[in-house]
Simulated assay, not measured.
Amino acid sequence: MAVFVALFLAIAGVAGALTATADSPEIALENPEVDVSESESIDVDGESYVVADISETENDEGQMIISGVLEREFTAETSETWANDSTVSLDDREWRVEVTGENATEFTLVEVLDRQAILEGDENAENETVTLDDGEYVAVTDDSGERTLVPVDEYFPAPEERSHATGETLEYDGQTVTVDEVTADGAVLVWETTETETVEVAQESIVTIEGTDYVAHFPDTSTLRMSTDIEAYETQTAEIDRFNQYNSGLSRVFILSVLSSIMLAGMAFIPSRY
């Protein structure tokens, strides 16, 4: 019994020593194409990306996970179609789009008068027009109290008109836009805008940038490294998996050996029936 106890203790000692002294392999990207810190920029196929953020958060399992964000600003062309006979807002006023002819090369913006606001602003005019058999009128009362009906075409000012041909520019919604095309259906306006592309980077994830695959690694909370040598990365992760598997096996051997030793030692003190 003593021999077996000593044997199990020896096995437990060896397993414990191997578990305690073994160094866990770590991910180490050799000569990575990207090795930057937060706020620094990288160039990929002529495109510039900025490391906008590197942060550490706690996941659902209570583990601290490092992740980052790459951002790239680029210019994109935006277009908008103004349909014929539609209404658009420009310079804080409403305008009606008019296109004349099937082969038109320009369109006209006709101001849509706010007749109600004009009537309400004239203390001598009634707030509603009067419709008779021969047309529409505005009722105006002069200083002597005499009420006169004025045809709406004479009372309201002539609407402003603006014509724009293909290739011309105009200010719209804070942008300088270009008339790209005019058809019988309407006008197409184009302009350039600055947009931002965001790339989320997780720890030891595969990130595709400009058609190239990179493996991402954060050695600390301030550094991002990315490498196209994904095969070498996968080899290292396989080594880590094997290490964890062997280490877990040794831990189980240690526990079983200690428990077996205790059980055998306890059995030695059980009194014999004979």
Rank of each mutant, 00 (worst) to 15 (best):
G46D: 06
A17G: 09
F254A: 12
D122R: 10
E195T: 06
R252M: 12
F156R: 09
Q175F: 03
D241W: 08
H217R: 04
D220T: 05
V5H: 10
E200R: 05
N244M: 07
S227P: 09
T176Q: 04
F269S: 14
S55L: 08
T198V: 12
V112A: 09
P219E: 05
E136W: 01
S67Y: 06
L9W: 01
A28Y: 09
T221Q: 13
M263H: 10
E30T: 14
V3H: 11
A104F: 02
N84M: 06
S86V: 11
A22W: 08
G266C: 04
V69S: 15
A17I: 08
T223K: 00
I206K: 08
T148N: 11
T223V: 03
D53Y: 03
D114S: 10
T78C: 01
L170R: 14
N124E: 13
V14D: 04
S251A: 08
L149F: 04
A202L: 08
F107E: 04
E77L: 03
L119A: 11
N244I: 04
V258Y: 04
V5L: 08
N103H: 00
W82R: 04
E171T: 15
V152K: 03
F269C: 07
A202C: 00
E197F: 00
T131W: 00
Y172D: 09
G46N: 06
Y214V: 04
A52N: 15
Y214L: 02
W95S: 11
V188E: 14
I270M: 14
E33C: 03
T129D: 07
S48I: 14
A22R: 05
E38R: 13
D91L: 07
S39V: 06
E94I: 06
Y155R: 03
R252Y: 11
I209K: 10
E195G: 00
L90N: 10
I209P: 11
R162H: 15
A83M: 10
L224C: 00
L224M: 01
I42A: 01
R72S: 08
P219Q: 01
T141M: 02
E195S: 03
E94K: 13
E192P: 10
W82S: 04
I230K: 13
L119V: 13
D143I: 05
V207G: 11
H217I: 03
E197R: 10
F156S: 11
G249I: 11
A117T: 15
T108Q: 02
E38A: 13
T194C: 01
E154G: 03
T129A: 06
F269G: 10
L29R: 14
I230M: 10
V130A: 05
T100Q: 13
S144L: 07
N84Y: 05
E136K: 12
S227Q: 07
E204Y: 00
T166W: 05
V138D: 10
T19D: 11
E200L: 01
G135P: 12
W191H: 10
E120R: 14
S48Y: 02
Y137W: 06
Q245G: 13
T221H: 08
V258K: 07
E168F: 00
T78H: 02
S89R: 14
N244Q: 14
S37Y: 01
M226R: 01
D122F: 06
E161S: 15
Y49N: 02
D241G: 11
T105F: 00
A52Y: 05
N31F: 02
P271W: 02
T75F: 00
A216Q: 03
E195Q: 07
F254I: 00
G62T: 12
S163W: 04
D134M: 00
